[in-house]
Design a protein around this nucleic acid. Structure first.
Length: 367
DNA sequence: GTTCTGTCCGTGATGCCGCC
DNA sequence: GGCGGCATCACGGACAGAAC
């Protein structure tokens, strides 16, 4: 009974009844009697080794302990009786051993005995992975081999008002042209942007290598690319925008405000990236400051969202916190699903071993 | 060594805003 | 309703580390 409580962390009478039924059913099914009618002592050659059984049960115990406390009862109820009995017998055995060890010193509480297998945290894999990723050189300036949904000129998009060219100038940093009335003109601008990107990479400029204070060479590359095409920078009217993938923090990408000033976009990118590296609270501050920032805009007759004003602090906080809450909910769901998957696997493994140990399964599994 | 999982990065598409 | 263009989302390949 205490074992069950230790496993579920609950003291529901219903759970206790279930445990009692299963434990009594286990002996009433007569596994031992059936076994005695066959070969009494000689073990089967393909019988699982105790170490293997022990590992499988340890895994199952850990999988159960990873399930959030409130969902454990449901999980235990849904577990096949064979696996559940084996687990209970295993834990009972563990408890006895622990009690024996603790006897000379002082008696330990049963609830504490179930704790050692509790992992440090359910998300430790994800946490461990976080922060270990560097930027691969191969990822920069390469066109991904994605399936294009429409066979249109890559980088040119059709808007209600015309056609624009958009290009990733450097990791996290995007540049868009102004709107043009035909796709050919936008395509030409796209070539100019590509050329600027190439010029920048040729002389080793890159946002990755340039801090916020040294964007001048990149600007020069843009001007040079325009001149090569017989254009002025004003013809292109580039607008810069930094986008940071924050799926690990808020479950989506976060964009800076679009600005005609490269320095502003780079500054926002830098804020968001350093915030992301430092964790949620820092990222939140960075995001808030980006949302509230005033940036330089194109001088066009565009209105509405194209002229969106900086958010007020309260609105920005609402937006940021809403995104985080939504992410946390989704994250919890994903974590629970992963726990359940691991549990199902562990249960299957124990069931297989139980079926292999046709003789006295409980006694063997608990030894 | 292979598979799984989560993150990074790049691209395309579309919603939305308010003046004209 | 048309317009200009920013904001946001969806999608998918590449990648790295963990798990098996």
């Amino acid at each position: 009974m205490n074992l069950q409580k230790a496993m579920t962390g609950m003291s529901s009478p219903k759970t206790d009844e279930i445990t009692a039924l299963d434990l009594s059913g286990c002996t009433a099914r007569g596994c031992l009697g059936r076994q005695s009618s066959r070969r009494p002592c000689r073990p089967k050659p393909n019988r699982p080794k105790p170490a293997r059984v022990h590992r499988a049960l340890c895994r199952l115990q850990q999988a159960v302990s990873e399930i959030p406390r409130e969902a454990r009862r449901e999980v235990l109820e849904g577990m096949p009786p064979t696996a559940r009995q084996a687990l209970l017998a295993f834990m009972e055995r563990q408890m006895c051993q622990a009690l024996e060890r603790a006897q000379p010193a002082k008696p330990a509480k049963p609830a504490q005995l179930a704790q050692p297998t509790q992992p440090a945290g359910q998300n430790r894999q994800a946490e461990a992975r976080r922060g270990h990723r560097g930027h691969s050189a191969s990822q920069t300036h390469q066109m991904p081999k994605t399936k294009k949904r429409k066979t249109r000129l890559v980088g040119v998009s059709h808007k209600k008002g015309g056609w624009t060219a958009k290009l990733c100038l450097s990791p996290y940093l995007y540049v868009s042209s102004r709107c043009f009335d035909n796709p050919h003109r936008a395509g030409m601008m796209l070539k100019v942007l590509c050329r600027a990107r190439d010029l920048a990479s040729m002389i080793g400029i890159g946002i990755a290598s340039s801090s916020g204070s040294s964007t001048q060479p990149l600007k020069q590359a843009l001007v040079a690319a325009c001149h090569e095409a017989g254009l002025e920078l004003n013809d292109l009217a580039p607008s810069f925008n930094a986008c940071v993938d924050a799926t690990g923090i808020v479950g989506c990408s976060v964009s800076s405000r679009s600005s005609t000033c490269l320095d502003e976009a780079v500054h926002h990118r830098s804020l968001l990236l350093s915030g992301r590296a430092a964790g949620w609270s820092h990222f939140r501050e960075a995001w808030l400051s980006v949302l509230q920032a005033t940036v330089q805009r194109r001088t066009s007759r565009a209105w509405g969202r194209a002229r969106m004003k900086p958010l007020r602090k309260q609105n920005a906080e609402e937006m940021v916190d809403k995104a985080r809450r939504s992410f946390e909910l989704r994250h919890e769901e994903r974590t629970l699903a992963a726990c359940r998957k691991r549990l199902a696997k562990a249960v299957r493994a124990v069931e297989v071993l139980c079926s292999e140990t046709r003789k006295r399964p409980l006694r063997m599994l608990s030894s």
